[in-house]
Computed example of a mutant assay.
Amino acid sequence: MPTSPTDIANLYNILGAGELSRLDTHPVELLVTLRIISEALPLAPQRIADVGGGPGKYAFALADQGHLVDLVDLSLGLIQLAQVEQDRRKAAGKGNLLESLSVGNALDPTILQHGIYDGVLLLGPLYHLVEESERVKAVANAAQLAKPNGVLFVAFVSIAAHLRDVAMREPGRLIAEKEFYAKYLQDGRYEKSKPGIGNVHSFHTRVGDIKSFFADNFADTLELVELRSQEGILGGSLDAALSKSEPQVIQAWADLMYEKYSTGEEHLGCADHLVAVLKKKT
């Protein structure tokens, strides 16, 4: 069954405040991901589309680096939070502004102009597209936005991430929901109705399946440059305590994770989030 965009938008309308602060409590993920982007797009200003970028945590950080960023998200609530930050910056005269903010669906090929972006971020949408055909369509749409030789950043959530979370919070679920988890471990589909939240649709995957996804569907159009973990070996909220550390301590850990623990096959499974860096072929 196709993923319901209404359900996803409603979910993030409810979770908006938490989404706004999430990366504050996971600073290594934020800094490692920004470095991944900066290494691939080293010269500002570059034109960047942040599709599914939520309240704009990455979008504003990239704008502050001098990039020209258009932010799109499915959730009106999250775009409204980004607009609050945009307005705050305007009033204060401090911090760079986004080029545009709009509500839009990663599955809609008309959300932004084609062929004009040096970089396209797809850091959130694939988490919630449970059908492979939808994930293919979202990536294909993102590729259309990019210039020839433009760079795509496409993120996935690891199956191991959810299992770590269940083990820490509600370990009995593995037995109580035995049939659900037997299926989940096969296809990575997490589809449930949660009280107070509604329908939750998410998709989780494995390193080998990410590589196969691009090889099977985009061999002629996209080159997989690298696959990196966004937390290094500090997945499972192991970086949460760093949010209370001094900035230089946080940066030192982020640098270590990026340089030593974000690419090796033995380290990729330790992350919650994995980002594929791809170049659009001419």
Rank of each mutant, 00 (worst) to 15 (best):
T6P: 00
A9R: 02
N13S: 11
N13R: 09
G16D: 03
G18T: 12
G18V: 11
T25C: 06
P27K: 08
L30W: 05
L41K: 12
P42V: 05
R47H: 15
G52S: 14
F60W: 04
A63V: 07
D64I: 02
G66P: 11
H67I: 00
L71R: 01
L71G: 00
L71F: 01
V72A: 00
D73Y: 00
L74G: 03
L74M: 07
L78D: 01
Q80F: 02
A82M: 06
Q83V: 01
E85F: 05
R88V: 02
R89S: 08
K94V: 10
G95N: 15
G95Y: 14
S100D: 00
G104W: 00
L107A: 02
L112Q: 01
H114P: 06
I116Q: 15
D118K: 02
V120K: 01
P125L: 13
Y127H: 13
Y127R: 06
E131C: 13
E132Q: 14
S133A: 11
E134P: 03
E134L: 03
R135V: 05
A138R: 02
V139G: 10
V139P: 05
A140N: 12
N141G: 05
L145A: 03
L145W: 10
K147F: 09
G150K: 10
G150T: 04
L152V: 12
L152P: 10
F153Q: 06
F153E: 06
A155F: 03
A155C: 10
F156D: 00
I159Y: 04
R164A: 14
A167C: 06
A167W: 05
R169A: 04
E170Y: 05
P171N: 10
L174P: 02
L185E: 13
Y190P: 07
K192Q: 12
S193T: 09
S193E: 11
K194S: 10
K194V: 14
I197M: 15
G198H: 14
V200L: 14
S202I: 09
H204C: 05
V207K: 07
G208K: 07
D209N: 09
F214D: 09
N217P: 14
L222H: 13
L227G: 08
R228A: 12
E231Y: 05
G232C: 09
L234N: 04
G236M: 11
A240I: 07
P247G: 06
Q248P: 00
Q251F: 02
D255C: 10
L256C: 13
T263R: 13
H267T: 11
A271K: 04
L274D: 03
K280M: 06
